[in-house]
Amino acid sequence: MTSVAIDIGWGTILSIKTVVVLAVIPAGAIILGYTFLLKMMSHMQSRLGPMDPGGFHGWFQLIGDGIKFIQKEDVMPQRADRRVFALAPAVVVIATFMVFVVIPAGPDLIVADLDTGVFYALAVSSLSVVGVLMAGWASANKFALLGALRAGAQLIAYELPLLLAVVGVVVQAGTMSLQGIVASQQNGEIFGWGGIGNPFVLTQIVGFALFLVAAQAELTQAPFDMPVAESELVSGYMVEYTGFRFLFFFIGEFGTAFAFAGLAATLFLGGWSIPHVTDVPVMNVLGPLVLLAKVMFVAFVMFWARFTYPRLREDQLQAVAWKYLIPIGLANIVLTGILKVVF
């Protein structure tokens, strides 16, 4: 934080950062939603997607949708638990918001470089389960409750592989701080060759795959989207939500996707860093762009799978987590540990 030339007090800095993060979430949600949900999916399905709003390839579509949602009537079911119902979307978005706190976008561009960075990110992202359960329960709707229970079970089950996938990285980097992990990738070497640093995706390819799969489940995206399976449960816990509350959920969903893609990019692809470019001011400008590019790549892979695969059944989903992902994750950790000790 030394590069902040004028001393403007930590309170001001904090509020600036808060505002930035608050802006990043909807921006990220819109970018992902537009690029992938609207355009990529359309092209994968031989369609064009929105073309008219905003003139150029329909870029305005989602913003327009947002405006539409805000204008809509705020419907609340008669028997709903009003306070909880109203609070639930906020909880989901807050959970997303808190993840962004530790994702670095440049040498100085980070809200708080926590010592326990990754751990923190995973911990707060698990908060959204509470929001989901609240939403499902408060809606007074069978479909919503069923969807919420499914979401809860799924999120709990997949937190574990997510964590295990990350542990491999943490072991290899020797730190939980995301900045530290970025640094160790930037300065690392593979088999003595440091030409491209050591993006952990090369050494932790199993972890990367696990992370993507588990993140997919955490985001309740296909093939793990049964909590919101529209052909069974309409849209799960979100079924009673309209207007801006639904917008919150939407932002939460894509914001979280953005966050997880950011985490994956940071943990496995080297985050904002470019190997051998260590100039701090330069990276403060370039970093966000590099990170964005990597995020887009990860998000592309995640959404690619989302648009291609059918969904599993609830029991199969649990079986995948407990029978395959977790043992693989544990084995990965053991292997990483052994190699770390040996080399």
Partner: peptide, 24 residues
């Protein structure tokens, strides 16, 4: 810090959710 985050992770992410789950 570590205890705090663990509190988040285990208590809120797991225990509280388990409670909600059990209640529902």
């Amino acid at each position: 810090e570590f205890v705090g985050i663990t509190q988040f992770f285990i208590y809120i992410g797991a225990i509280a959710v388990l409670f909600l789950f059990g209640i529902m």
